[in-house]
Design a protein around this nucleic acid. Sequence first.
DNA 1: CACATATAGTTAGCATCATAACTAAATACG
DNA 2: CGTATTTAGTTATGATGCTAACTATATGTG
Lengths: 153, 153
Amino acid sequence: MFFLKDLPTRQMIDGYAATYDHVDPDQTNAALHLLRDASLLIRRIEKYLAQHDLSQTQFLILMILHRDKTRDHHLAAEIAQKMDVSKPVLSTAMKSLLRKGLIAYGDKIDDARAKPVQITPKGAAALERLLPDYFRILQSDPGDAGQDTKERP
Amino acid sequence: MFFLKDLPTRQMIDGYAATYDHVDPDQTNAALHLLRDASLLIRRIEKYLAQHDLSQTQFLILMILHRDKTRDHHLAAEIAQKMDVSKPVLSTAMKSLLRKGLIAYGDKIDDARAKPVQITPKGAAALERLLPDYFRILQSDPGDAGQDTKERP
DNA sequence: CACATATAGTTAGCATCATAACTAAATACG
DNA sequence: CGTATTTAGTTATGATGCTAACTATATGTG
């Protein structure tokens, strides 16, 4: 994602509010800050994951497979629903995860079209290595610049 | 951008907090909601802009050129700084805006490398047509599904 | 002045996203 | 049953993003 780092000043927003009566300066300001903060945070997450050779999509697939241990398999279409992405994106991301051995096809189920997948022990281990710093980044202040990826002594 | 629509439950987050002591469930929960809300909002904005044949980057370039009227030109490198994107992205987006006639090169300045650009009257008009609904989307609740782009009677 | 370094912008190559079109299997229904 | 529709997943195509490498100009230093 990408959004303005330099948000419009309050004065500019008030200017727009004067032009368009439906514009509420506080709401607009809050929305712009939401977008900027999320944008900066996502950037850091993506950078961190990229250093470990995963896209955010791949990471989230692992998270979904890992977090729901009440079931031994999941379907791509289902994962796509839980995430905010289209089916082809899942298809590609899962192909990559399969190649890396982080997920694997599970036992065939009744529906012959379906390809149930599971996280592998290797995948779970990789994810678990990433989680501590992932949570650190999530909890970091979006404002202060990135020293997220530095090793901690 | 893309992020989980189905966030982990509070229970799952508490599970992670129990595993990793540096995880604060409230902060983590807040960050995840931030990312999700922004993700949904950005999706709607991109969809709206795409219907009017602009990418978000192109739109933001127009916004930057339009909002700062204290100067008659801007440089790409400067715009890239205000936004959260790399120079080549600016280069591509500006090429597209030039083709559409929404921006134009301004008067040459002292530095022969620089290519100062301005928003054209056509670009300003296009932007101004988009702004009312843009602000409506910004102010809308990220939760309720998209009926943003419907025509208003 | 000459040569090293920095900066403005573009081009090249690669990854990821989206929509649309496709294959194959499942379901629905006359 | 047989045909139509739906659903799981992949493939094709196009847009956009990033980093790295490039051209050209500017600046800094001996």
